[in-house]
Amino acid sequence: MVSRRPLGSLESEVLEVLWKSDDPLTPSEVLHRLDTDLAYTTVMTVLGRLWGKGLANRSKTGRAFAYSAVMSEADLSADRMRKVLDASSDRVATMSHFLDGLDSVQQRELRRMLEERE
């Protein structure tokens, strides 16, 4: 079966894999971890796009590139960010509307649960 998932949502799935991994990954390793039936070239394209956006670093390992996620905020390319923000900044604010405010009781509850886990 051919996956017809749009490249856009694939991109975040690939980034999810990169963020989870401790080491840089080659396209075939990413493909393996995605456990889908994607084409190798698709994964390569997506990794290339992430690199182009400044969300991933790459280094040559043998014949292929190995990719790792850009972790520090300073390294994330600000140009690209601003461009999207211009189009949608006030929209983001309205889209992320108030759904379910946390009152002080809920906050205390959540803090308690967090402390229990740690």
Partner: peptide, 14 residues
């Protein structure tokens, strides 16, 4: 339409 530009992962300054 507003979010039509979103293509993949977009980090916004907010």
């Amino acid at each position: 339409k507003v979010f039509g530009d979103v293509d993949g992962v977009e980090v916004v300054l907010l």
